[in-house]
Simulated assay, not measured.
Amino acid sequence: MPEMPTKLAEIVDEFATAPRDVVLEMLLEYSDAIPPLPAEFSGREGMEQVPECQTAFFLRAEVTPEGTVTTWFDCPPEAPTTRAFAGILAEGLAGATVGEVLAVPGDLYHRMGLDKAISPLRVRGGTAVLARLQRQVREQSAS
């Protein structure tokens, strides 16, 4: 059974072991880690909205013929915490296989200790982002 990608596991460990007062700073660093959207998604065409997020958040996952997953996220700069969730996933899942993406635990943000640093509503939004991303990967890999 595959495990979550090594890079994502390292990020989880960094957050889990960081002092609480540093966690928010770390989150802000990840809010800048989202790559710009390619032109084909400029109008959010082909992207799925995550309504559980308090802010407008869109995502798209694609499974390549080689079985790796490419992700895209769109979230406004005014929502740094939500952007940080996307940045963590963008960096942690870069080059990941279908099995690795599906092996990411649903309680990822709890394991990171974020439930002690940010509101439950924000954690729920981040959890919904991961669930939708995994659902897209599952659907594409099944076809």
Rank of each mutant, 00 (worst) to 15 (best):
A79H: 09
T97Q: 03
G92V: 06
E91D: 12
G106P: 00
G92H: 03
F85R: 12
V101S: 05
F73I: 05
V98I: 13
G92Y: 11
P77Y: 12
C75G: 00
T97E: 10
G106H: 07
A103K: 01
L89H: 01
T81D: 08
G95M: 08
L102H: 02
E91M: 09
E78Q: 13
T97N: 02
C75R: 05
A79I: 13
T82R: 04
L102F: 03
L89T: 14
G92N: 04
F85C: 10
G95N: 14
A103D: 05
R83D: 10
V98Y: 09
C75N: 05
P76C: 13
E78I: 06
G87V: 08
T97M: 09
A79C: 02
F85I: 11
V98M: 06
P76Y: 13
A86M: 13
F73M: 04
A103M: 15
Y109K: 00
E91F: 02
G87K: 04
P77F: 10
I88Q: 06
R83N: 02
D107R: 00
G106T: 03
V101P: 05
P77M: 03
G92T: 07
E78A: 14
A94F: 01
L93N: 09
T81F: 08
L108R: 00
P105Q: 12
V98K: 08
V98Q: 04
T97R: 14
P105L: 02
V104C: 04
G99T: 08
A103H: 00
F73V: 00
L102T: 03
A79K: 02
T81R: 10
V98A: 11
L108T: 01
V101N: 07
A86C: 15
L108I: 09
Y109L: 09
F73G: 00
D74L: 06
F73C: 04
E100R: 09
T97C: 13
T97V: 09
T82I: 07
V104Q: 01
T97D: 09
A90D: 14
T82L: 06
V98D: 06
G99W: 07
P80R: 13
A86D: 11
T97K: 10
P80H: 15
P105K: 09
G92P: 12
Y109H: 00
P80L: 11
G95W: 14
I88E: 08
C75W: 02
E100T: 05
G92A: 10
G99R: 06
P76F: 13
G87T: 03
Y109F: 15
G99H: 10
P76A: 06
T82W: 09
L108E: 02
G95P: 10
P80A: 05
T97F: 15
A103F: 13
G87W: 05
A79D: 15
E78G: 08
A94H: 15
F85H: 11
F85A: 10
P77I: 04
T97Y: 14
P80S: 08
G95R: 11
L89R: 01
P77V: 13
A103N: 02
V101K: 04
V98L: 08
R83P: 02
F73A: 01
T81M: 12
R83G: 07
F85S: 09
F73H: 03
G95V: 12
I88H: 12
A84Y: 03
G92E: 11
A84P: 05
G106I: 04
G106V: 01
D74W: 15
